[in-house]
């Protein structure tokens, strides 16, 4: 009877740990998918950005071409997650370059179309930053379960390993935000 009791407790604990790990893994996927949605929003804004700025920014043609190239790669559906994150990081850097370069083009800064577009881009960047933080929080909860006792035992059985956090590109960190 005592052994059956112990067995039941172990079984219930295992079920709880198993379900909790699955739930945390799914939350991490969900958080990643929300980043994906915002990445998509940003990618959709790129053609408008190129169209609006190319008439003004004569000396930034190379950057604009690079941005268009990255966008083309991003809309390819066969991309792996890692490749996608790398490309998005590159895009971050390129957009920051454009934001700084804008300072040298007063006509562009005064253009209503550009201001509207920049407002949309700022909004998307804010959402993206929030989504990345939400993703990191979900990954943090998952990683804690993978490392902490007793959930680490179940994680080992399930073959779960630590997941990497979303890191901010060092280049991106240095870039100041755009000022009007």
């Amino acid at each position: 009877m005592f052994l059956i009791g112990i067995g039941m407790i172990i079984l219930l604990m295992s079920i709880f740990l198993y379900n909790s790990l699955i739930s945390k893994k799914n939350k991490a996927y969900e958080a990643f998918s929300s980043i994906d949605v915002i990445f998509k929003k940003r990618t959709d804004l790129i053609p408008h950005l190129v169209k609006v700025v190319k008439g003004y920014m004569e000396h930034e043609r190379e950057t604009l071409t690079e941005i268009t190239k990255i966008r083309k790669q991003l809309i390819n559906k066969n991309l792996e997650d890692d490749q996608r994150i790398n490309l998005e990081s590159k895009l971050d850097g390129m957009l920051s370059k454009i934001n700084i370069a804008v300072e040298a083009y007063p006509d562009l800064k005064a253009s209503e179309n550009f201001l509207k577009l920049q407002a949309s881009l700022n909004e998307v960047e804010e959402q993206l930053s929030a989504a990345r933080r939400a993703y990191n929080a979900a990954i943090n909860a998952f990683n804690n379960s993978v490392e902490m006792f007793p959930s680490n035992l179940m994680a080992k059985i399930m073959g779960y390993t630590l997941k990497p956090l979303f890191k901010i590109n060092p280049e991106e960190r240095k870039v100041p935000t755009i000022k009007f």
């Binding site: 804010e126 929030a130 933080r133 939400a134 990191n136 929080a137 943090n140």
Partner: peptide, 28 residues
């Protein structure tokens, strides 16, 4: 329940939200 990254803020407040991402969009 939303666990925020700012430890000082977390010590003083508890955050509940309908959406984890939106909570972070608001609470920069």
């Amino acid at each position: 329940l939303v666990n925020m990254e700012d430890t000082e803020f977390e010590k003083q407040f508890v955050v509940y939200s309908t959406d984890q991402t939106e909570a972070r969009y608001i609470l920069t």
